[in-house]
Amino acid sequence: MDISEILVTLGGISLAALVLWYFFFSTRQTVSAVSAAGGLQEVDITVKGGYAPDVIEVERGKPVQLRFYRDEENSCSEELLIPDFRIRRDLPAFKTTLVELLPQQAGRFSFTCGMGMLRGTLVVK
């Protein structure tokens, strides 16, 4: 094994470690919903290569309005799925889509793009 093969192998191992860290160990941006008039909990979410914020905390038993602004044309992000609430929405590019739900149970509920590559979590307390 010559030096170039060693460097390529070390580079590959480093990149694999970086990908594992990013998907499993990096910190996530957590936001608590803001209560508006009438007790409606509101959160603005930007969709651009992922969801920002990607962890959203809300209170159980109060209505929630998630406002998804899709700031890209990437085909992966054109659909939103929240399976535990039986929600499926198309997200048009450069527009805001409102998603309203009423969480009745505490827990962690995932939301994803149609391909399952972009992921977020709704934490109901």
Rank of each mutant, 00 (worst) to 15 (best):
L7K: 06
S77I: 00
R86W: 09
R119Q: 14
I6K: 05
A106W: 01
T112M: 08
C76N: 13
R86Q: 15
P53A: 09
L81A: 11
M1I: 15
T46N: 10
I82G: 02
V19Q: 00
L81H: 09
E42G: 06
G38H: 06
T97P: 02
R28S: 12
T46K: 15
F24A: 04
A33N: 02
G49I: 02
E57F: 08
I3A: 08
K125L: 10
T121Q: 11
V31N: 02
G11Y: 01
E42Y: 07
P103V: 00
G61E: 06
T96R: 09
P92V: 06
E73W: 04
M117P: 00
E79I: 13
G39A: 05
L122V: 10
E5K: 13
K62D: 10
G12S: 05
G116R: 07
R119I: 10
A17G: 06
S75K: 07
R89H: 04
T30C: 07
V123E: 12
E57K: 14
T30H: 10
G12I: 07
A33Q: 03
P83F: 02
R108W: 07
E59N: 13
C76K: 14
Q65I: 14
S32W: 03
L101Q: 04
V43N: 03
F111V: 10
R28K: 14
W21F: 13
M1L: 11
S26I: 00
P63C: 12
L18K: 00
L102P: 02
R28N: 10
A17W: 02
D54L: 11
I87Y: 04
R70F: 07
G49S: 02
S4P: 00
L102C: 00
D71F: 13
F25S: 02
D84G: 11
R67D: 06
R108G: 10
R28M: 07
L10D: 03
Y51W: 10
V123C: 10
V19K: 01
V47S: 04
E100K: 14
F109W: 04
L18Y: 09
Q104H: 02
S26H: 04
K125Q: 12
S32I: 02
E100Q: 11
L66E: 08
R88S: 14
E79N: 11
A52T: 15
L102I: 07
